[in-house]
Design a protein around this nucleic acid. Structure first.
Length: 661
DNA sequence: ATAGGGTTAG
């Protein structure tokens, strides 16, 4: 059979006998009405030769007729390597595990299972079919393990989330003295990300990085880009930046990886800046849809509506507006910039939708406080034939939580397992704790945690602590924070929350104790920041901001506003100030909050009638919330504030959150 | 001899 195969005929099976020769000669006419040989019928007689049967199987595989191919296989005593390969690929492609096992069996009986080429293909097949055990078995049973076989198993294990195993295997491979190749590293680096344990980053990642440099791969674009991505996923923006900066060759993927690194690690300014640099510095590289997704994400994070609109324009000009991930990120961008109606419009214009597009829409309504609409969209998604993903539930449960729809949320949570066979993750439990906790059903929230079937992570305890803050439950807060201090000792936010709760309860001694703990561990509270986009420029504010040239003017106006509004009924919420000071001092501290400065800046610098849009990196404090309501009423301005969790839309002295947040 | 790799939305 191989004798017939010359390089040119690899793609087209070789003409083997006259009947097929006819077919090959008249291929054009053969297409619409295939000849009887090509369709080859179940009636393949026993008299057909081995070569013929191989050919038939190959044709059937290429046409996706797996079942018939297998039927012929069962009559075929001696399939070629190529035939097996096509069968394996076909099984993988069609998600046919049972058939794949049949092929594997056949191949073992034939003694072909020691062929490292086929072993590689089998491992890939099992990987695609989510049968990692079988992939491992193929590896174990293959005696002649070429680097292809090793790499295939690395890839399979990484995709299945067994990162640690890959690292161990890789080390074993090195010990045994098998040389790795450039492909090995892209898989092993990804495995570092998928591996568990605190030490994964410092030990494994750096270890592999060192090997890569020692082997002289520092000029290899694929490997270096993966390295950038690895550091990005570890949250080490600095390391990613260094690798990126030292790359001798960069392509669109490398740039996109670095932009995504900034966007995903809370540095949206830097993401936009790098995108600008890419556009200016590289003339042969065009950003692609993947790049734009990260850029849009950054716009959304900054609530930079004007920037976002510009990018949207660019997306349209480049014709990237029909790509699903791009549209979904446009929906999210508009919603996060406060333009819920625009988000809905973009969504409406899609001709094709997937779960992610729906999830974008659902969470958009969620952060704007429209819980019912979110649920409605969730149901519409199901009616349209798309099954919810775990993220769909995160989105809809979050929406219920923001809107105080406790019963709906509980029903949703129950339906997860019952109707959709989706088992709740830590994320979902955190949503439920939040939902119940906000609604002042703290006992129920605590019960949920007790009854969890998986280990409650910091997200879950954090939700509980946040709810304790809202409802001033010192006792439960102490329990939650004790767990949190164990689980994430370096997260300053948890200490601050606990101190807030003690302060509200006027337990000054305890406040000082927590603050000392913070100092002893050399942790710093994340400073509150707010920002506002005015005429496509973004201005940021911090409570100790002396850089803004208008700062004096802002302070003066704020003081005047607060005095006037006190006469209208504004009462400064001094209870949230951590220090045991007199009330005048406390008021002064409150007036320094960054969102008040941003609102005032907006009042001065935007045109009347324009909505003022503010973004804040933390949760909105009660005092700012209260004062902003008054400001919206007495200055007749609409003010939109997005905090970490959701939107607050202030109009005529009321907020869209109905004081529930 | 052949084969395979990096960035993506919620």
């Amino acid at each position: 059979m191989f004798a017939f195969q010359s390089p040119q005929t690899v793609q087209q099976p070789p003409p083997l006998f006259s009947k097929h020769l006819e077919c090959a000669a008249t291929r054009s006419s053969c297409r619409p009405r295939p000849c009887s040989f090509c369709t080859l019928n179940p009636a393949i007689s026993t008299s057909t030769t081995t070569a013929d049967k191989n050919h038939v199987i190959q044709r059937l595989c290429q046409k996706g007729e797996l079942k018939r191919a297998l039927r012929v296989l069962s009559q075929e005593p001696n399939p070629t390597q190529r035939t097996y390969e096509l069968l394996i690929l076909s099984c993988a492609h069609q998600g046919a595990l049972a058939e794949g096992l049949d092929v594997h069996c056949h191949l073992s009986e034939n003694g072909s299972d020691q062929d490292p080429f086929l072993a590689t293909k089998l491992i890939n097949m099992y990987s695609e079919l989510d049968a990692i055990e079988n992939a491992r078995k193929v590896f174990d049973e293959t005696r002649n393990r070429t680097i292809y076989v090793w790499n295939a198993l690395f890839r399979a294990l990484t995709l299945a989330g067994h990162g640690n195993e890959v690292i161990d295997l890789y080390r074993r491979m090195k010990r045994v003295g098998i040389p790795s190749d450039r492909f090995t590293y892209t898989f092993v680096l990804k495995a570092c990300v998928a591996s568990e344990g605190v030490l994964s980053f410092s030990q494994k990642g750096r270890e592999i990085h060192a090997h890569i440099l020692r082997l002289g791969y520092e000029g290899h674009v694929h490997i270096m880009t993966t390295l950038v991505d690895m550091y990005a996923r570890f949250g080490c923006v600095k390391c990613a930046g260094i690798v990126f900066g030292e790359m001798s060759q960069k392509n669109v993927v490398s740039w996109s990886a670095m932009i995504a690194c900034y966007a995903k690690n809370g540095m949206p300014f830097e993401a936009l800046e790098l995108f600008r640099e890419m556009m200016l510095k590289t003339h042969d590289l065009l950003p692609n849809s993947v790049t734009m997704v990260s850029v849009l994400q950054a716009c959304g994070a900054l609530a930079a509506l004007e920037q976002g609109r510009l990018i949207h324009g660019y997306v349209l000009r480049r014709g990237l507006d029909s790509i699903l991930p791009v549209i979904s990120s446009l929906v999210t961008m508009y919603a996060r910039c406060g333009k819920l109606d625009r988000a809905q419009q973009v969504f409406d214009k899609m001709d094709e939708r997937d779960v992610v597009s729906w999830n974008s829409l659902i969470s958009s309504y969620g952060i704007h406080g429209f819980g019912e609409v979110a649920i409605q969209n969730f149901n519409e998604m199901i009616i349209s034939g798309i099954s919810p993903s775990p993220i769909s539930f995160v989105s809809v449960l979050g929406a219920c939580s923001h809107a105080g729809l406790v019963e709906d949320g509980k029903m949703m949570f129950d339906s997860m397992v019952r109707e959709h066979r989706i088992f709740p993750s830590v994320e979902h439990y955190a949503c439920m704790v939040d939902l119940l906790g906000r609604a002042n059903r703290l006992d129920e929230a605590a019960t949920i945690i007790e009854e969890m079937r998986i280990e409650p992570g910091p997200k879950v305890w954090g939700s509980l602590l946040g709810s304790c803050r809202i409802h001033c439950n010192v006792e439960l807060a102490e329990r939650a924070s004790a767990r949190l201090f164990e689980l994430e000792p370096t997260n300053a936010g948890n200490y601050v929350l606990l101190a807030d709760i003690y302060a509200e309860a006027k337990m000054w001694h305890e406040v000082r104790r927590v603050k000392k703990l913070l100092e002893a561990r050399r942790l710093q509270k994340v400073p509150g920041r707010s920002w506002i986009e005015v005429k496509r420029k973004i201005y940021t504010f911090a409570s100790v901001d002396e850089l803004n040239p208008q700062i004096e003017q802002l302070h003066a106006l704020l003081l005047k506003l607060s005095m006037e509004l006190k006469e209208e009924g504004y009462v400064p919420q001094t209870g949230i100030v951590h220090y045991d000071l007199d009330s005048e001092e406390k008021e002064r501290i409150l007036l320094g909050h960054s969102e008040k400065l941003a609102v005032t800046f907006g009042l001065i610098n935007s045109t009347k009638g324009e909505t003022i849009r503010i973004t804040k990196n933390l949760r909105l404090c009660e005092d700012c919330h209260s004062l902003t309501k008054f400001i919206s009423k007495y200055t007749k301005r609409e003010i939109l504030v997005r905090d970490v969790n959701r939107f607050h839309y202030f109009k005529d002295g009321v907020c869209s959150c109905r004081d529930y947040w």
